[in-house]
Amino acid sequence: MARVSQARLAVFALLIVSAIWGAHAVVGANVERVIAPLPLTVGRFTVTALCFFPALFHARKRFRQMSMRTWLTLTAAGLSVAVFYPLFYYQSLLTLSPVESLLIINAAPILAAFLAFVFYRERLSRRQLLGMGIALFGVILIATKASGRGHTSLSALLDAGIGMASFAFYTVISRKLFQALPRFDVLGVTSVIGALALWLIAFAQGQADHTLETYAHLTLAAWLGFLFIALFVSVIAYTLFGYALPRVPTGLSASLTFYPQAVFAALLQWVIIGTLPTLRTFLGGGVLLVGTFLLQKSNVQTSGKDLGEQTARENRSSQL
């Protein structure tokens, strides 16, 4: 009975995570009316790093024993997820609608599967290749609709594509990190690395004073939007995700966190901004989701087979 209750709580937690991450696109587009992408990203990950700092202090002995290769991997993960991904994602939100940008960003699992093949030689099944092709067609439908609005939209599509590629890269290289290190160690280190890198960028561009001045003159509404991004998107959502992930099957967790995001974003975009996604955006999003579903379903089946083989090996070892 206790396990059933924990599983139900985990499912509820994942739905909350999906709602938060879906709302991120709409709230981010709204906040960017008063906060530019760089100050927004600097502030977000500064707050995130401070929230995760207690976990870093608790893990300081483990950090002394980590190899240089692990530190380099953590640095690459921090730069991809806390610098390149949010900066280009927020830049795309200045032109694209929240749903358009979110759907392109959420195509990251498709590129991640390809990168896993390149870096780790993970085999791609026919179903995975089919899913990648279908999802790519969905992205093209969304992109052609957005590109019809002119040169600015083409630049925004490039920004969204770079953001998507950055998140896909993080997904691939962070896999081994989460297998080797506690989740909050990884989240804490990558957040601190990202915050330090972002402040260096701000100083190099002469934007450090402007960043501080931006937050000194925010209205209450802007502060609420920023705190939602910094606390809910970066801290609370990842904490809930870390709680739920070990308590539900991988396929269910992926479905509950990925697929409802576009629905939540579309609803909030309509309520807050007053804009409904176009028919082509709906069609492209549906095609993209179908392709991603095929890809993730194949990944789950492969992971389950590998896990079963690993469990069998461990059982045989324990009998010896």
Rank of each mutant, 00 (worst) to 15 (best):
A221E: 15
R62D: 15
Y90R: 11
N30L: 02
E213D: 13
L129C: 05
G138W: 07
A29N: 10
L14H: 03
V263K: 05
T73N: 11
F282Q: 09
T46H: 04
A262H: 06
C51S: 14
L283Q: 14
E213I: 11
A59C: 10
K61D: 15
R33Q: 10
L268G: 04
L218V: 11
S298R: 07
L200S: 14
L212W: 09
T311W: 08
F63P: 04
K61A: 15
R149E: 13
Y120N: 15
R149H: 14
V186L: 05
I142H: 00
M164C: 07
S253K: 01
T257C: 05
F137Q: 05
T302R: 13
V26S: 05
G78R: 01
P260N: 15
A221Q: 15
G274T: 12
A262Q: 12
F63S: 14
G138V: 12
A143D: 06
G291T: 06
S253V: 01
L9K: 07
I110K: 02
I134F: 06
T292R: 03
R69A: 14
L289M: 15
A29H: 10
R123T: 07
S5H: 08
S80E: 06
M1I: 04
V31D: 02
I162F: 01
A23M: 00
P86L: 12
V31R: 04
T214Y: 13
A254N: 14
V47F: 13
I105G: 03
V263R: 05
L240V: 08
F167R: 01
Q319E: 01
F45L: 07
S97V: 00
G251M: 06
A112S: 12
L129Y: 02
G148N: 01
A59I: 08
Y170L: 02
F119Q: 07
A143H: 04
A208F: 02
V235Q: 02
R280N: 08
R247M: 03
N30V: 01
A108N: 12
R121T: 02
A82G: 12
F241N: 01
Y215P: 00
R313P: 01
I272V: 11
A108W: 10
Q179D: 14
V17A: 03
G163A: 08
W21S: 02
A230I: 04
I173K: 02
L102R: 04
T219A: 14
V300Q: 12
S317E: 09
V4D: 14
S97G: 09
Q128P: 03
G150D: 08
V186G: 01
F12G: 15
F45I: 06
L93R: 02
V31I: 10
L124D: 11
A23P: 00
P260S: 15
V186A: 03
L187T: 05
T95G: 03
F117P: 02
A107M: 13
F184K: 02
F119N: 06
S253M: 06
G286Y: 08
L289H: 09
M68A: 12
N106M: 09
